[in-house]
Nucleic acid binder design. Structure first.
Lengths: 218, 218
DNA sequence: ACAGTTTTCTTAACAGTGTTAACTAATTAT
DNA sequence: ATAATTAGTTAACACTGTTAAGAAAACTGT
């Protein structure tokens, strides 16, 4: 039976696959994922639409590839902020990471939409068990974010009035709650904030994060 | 020139319009708005697709009609909770309203998706100026929710350590922040919570609202 | 009652979408 | 050189929203 493919062919196959992704990414970033079509990609790479189906099972799988790219970029951003703010207080670090989260969504609205609208279920699955289909770098940011929240919540739990005995806050749950809230903010304001200047946007986000951590009422 | 339409025809025209909406709503509620197609609607109402275009300019306008129906239902729900909890404390009332918000999203996932994903910009526009295309009942819930938050935030502002002088919290902004956070919660968990029993879901939502109002850290 | 106007609805098509079966051309393995 | 595998194309299927043009029915004014 043999391996069936020569080295040279494997190379060009990888190249075509790469060019498909590249073309899809181009269309996706300029028009949003809903305007990515197999025929448009085919036009760009100068092949017929059918050829794409020899490299991806279907459109969903191709979009998933774009999701991976965007999610990896997102996670590298968050991760970088984490390591840059190691000597700051926990609260400052958390705040910086959440702001980076928000800024990414504003700077990369297309990626944000794909990640947090279309593939939100995959992100959630990612958080529960580390996926073996991704390398660590591609999801570590989210883990570091969770870890930072957990550490901070646990710390406050210890320092607070120790009368309550057992911890009444589930730190994991608290972290997820915080995440959902921040994600809600990005979802709500990413269509609105696009027309607004960067500095104003950042200050707005800072006030949000601040109120979130301190509570809306207290 | 004349009015051009007899009374009897106006009636049947309204009836057809109603049957279109009815069919669209049926398809929408069982399959989600993405699976609503002009031809499927036409099949159900026993007309050709073209006929629909004599009652609605395009699909978007038809979906907008479904949005209005869902948003009105949503607002009546929130409004009812407001008036039912008038003798409770402000915080209890706010909590009850936010929980109703979350429960609506879980009970009516299709409506939630249409309102808070596809037409979120229209909701935001709604909050800034009352739309004359809708009757008061159809958006009052959101206003009452905002009002409740504002009142509560303003109250805490007064009661708190008065050392700060001027109010450092913009109550409108605080209300919107709270709203985005709650909406983020519903967006995140409405795919997850569907498989989970109602009571568990409610308690989960209660913990979220509680942490949100008190702050994740304090 | 008849002619003319208006409204209502259909037929047929256009321009897209994702996807697949069947076929050809080229490359590789034995 | 022959057989097997791979790469790529053509052509079609079953959908999608939308529209131009025409037919049929209903209503209007005389």
């Amino acid at each position: 039976m043999g391996t069936g493919t020569s080295t040279r062919n494997l190379q060009t196959k990888e190249q075509i696959r790469a060019s498909i992704i590249d073309a899809a990414l181009k269309l996706f970033l300029s028009n949003g994922y809903e305007h990515v079509s197999m025929r448009k990609i085919a036009d760009v790479i100068q092949y017929t639409p059918t050829t794409i189906y020899h490299h991806f099972q279907n459109k969903e799988e191709l979009l998933q590839e774009l999701f991976h790219i965007g999610f990896a970029k997102f996670n590298r951003t968050i991760r970088a902020v984490f390591y840059e703010s190691l000597e700051q207080t926990g609260e400052q670090r958390l705040s910086a990471m959440l702001l980076a989260y928000i800024e990414f969504s504003m700077d990369e609205p297309q990626h944000h939409q794909l990640i947090f609208h279309k593939f939100i279920d995959r992100v959630l699955a990612c958080m529960q068990t580390a996926p073996e289909s991704m390398d660590k770098e591609s999801y570590e940011g989210m883990f570091l974010l969770m870890q930072t929240v957990k550490a901070l919540v646990a710390e406050r739990e210890r320092d607070g009035d120790g009368g309550d005995g057992e911890s009444l806050t589930d730190v994991t749950e608290a972290a997820i709650f915080l995440w959902t809230a921040v994600n809600g903010y990005t979802n709500m304001f990413f269509p609105l904030h696009r027309s607004v200047e960067r500095e104003w946007r950042r200050q707005h986000a800072e006030r949000f994060v601040d109120q979130l951590l301190r509570g809306v009422l207290y």
